[in-house]
């Protein structure tokens, strides 16, 4: 599955310094495969544009039907919301921040569907002027939001606590559930919600777990949990992913003129 006639989703990559077998340490563009597999399985074509110059953002955005911002072990730079990093070991991905923030704002303005998971939801919040808790473990509260280092991958991504949808809200409508268990493996979390964003679900300690852009004709959602993991069997995750895919398909239908192909070259 790929190619013409299929909605194209721009996956915002992360950047990490990785070590090769012979001791090379080099900067890599990294894309988490779970998100990609979910996109492919749902009939979307993932694409990523490494090192895209800022002046080509608009043209590149015009060639896609959705934006996906996945999780990453790196932190959004707290300086974006006026704080110094609390701990020296926080890894910052400046290249991702520099692309993600203007891209999110432009995508919302152009009504291109946006979905963010975990770090990706933090990208959306900070891009719109919000702020983050830097280290949730320092906060008093009964909810554990983080994984243990000795857990297996499946244990890390298992549902760790419940989230409650805003009664009568959009997430409740989308998932047809008022409360559901969610995965939780993060150290940052929404403190002040960005401008134009509406909280749609909270953990029992009050942390924002899902939010959206306020305009109903724009699909722009951030999720603190990972609906791309387990979307086949978790009903809320499945319905969230379906809603995103529908938004991308709708955008694709609007974008596709008879003589147009999904991936146009980027305009200088």
């Amino acid at each position: 599955m790929a190619g013409m006639g299929v909605p194209v989703v721009w996956v915002v990559a992360s950047h990490r310094i990785l070590t090769g077998p012979s001791g090379h340490k080099q900067l890599y563009t990294c894309i988490d495969e779970v998100g990609q597999r979910t996109l492919l399985n749902m009939g979307l074509q993932p694409v990523s544009y490494p090192r895209l110059p800022p002046d080509r953002l608009e043209a590149a955005l015009a060639s896609v039907d959705g934006i996906l911002l996945g999780g990453s072990d790196t932190n959004v730079d707290p300086r974006w919301f006026g704080e110094e990093p609390l701990r020296p070991e926080f890894e910052i991905d400046a290249e991702r921040d520099d692309l993600a923030h203007p891209l999110i704002r432009l995508a919302i303005a152009r009504k291109v569907p946006v979905i963010g998971f975990c770090h990706g939801s933090h990208d959306i919040n900070v891009a719109l002027g919000g702020s983050l808790h830097q280290w949730l473990r320092d906060l008093p509260g009964a909810v554990k939001h983080w994984e243990d280092p000795d857990e297996t991958i499946d244990e890390q991504y298992a549902e760790r606590h419940f989230v409650t949808c805003r009664p009568g809200g959009e997430l409740e409508r989308m998932t047809r559930m008022g409360r559901f268990p969610a995965s939780s493996l993060h150290s940052q979390g929404v403190k002040l919600l960005g401008e134009g964003l509406v909280a749609e679900a909270h953990a029992d300690d009050g942390l924002v777990e899902a939010f959206r852009w306020h305009e109903p004709d724009v699909f722009a959602w951030g999720f603190q949990f990972h609906p791309e993991w387990g979307w086949r069997w978790h009903p809320a995750y499945g319905r969230i992913m379906n809603a995103y895919v529908r938004a991308c398909r709708d955008h694709h239908a609007r974008r596709a003129a008879p003589a147009q192909v999904p991936l146009q070259p980027i305009v200088a």
Partner: peptide, 18 residues
């Protein structure tokens, strides 16, 4: 402009090359 098609498979090649 570099472009990545993550997880592209053999069957995708004829669709992506154009």
């Amino acid at each position: 402009q570099p472009v990545l098609f993550p997880m592209a498979e053999v069957a995708d090649v004829p669709c992506l090359l154009p």
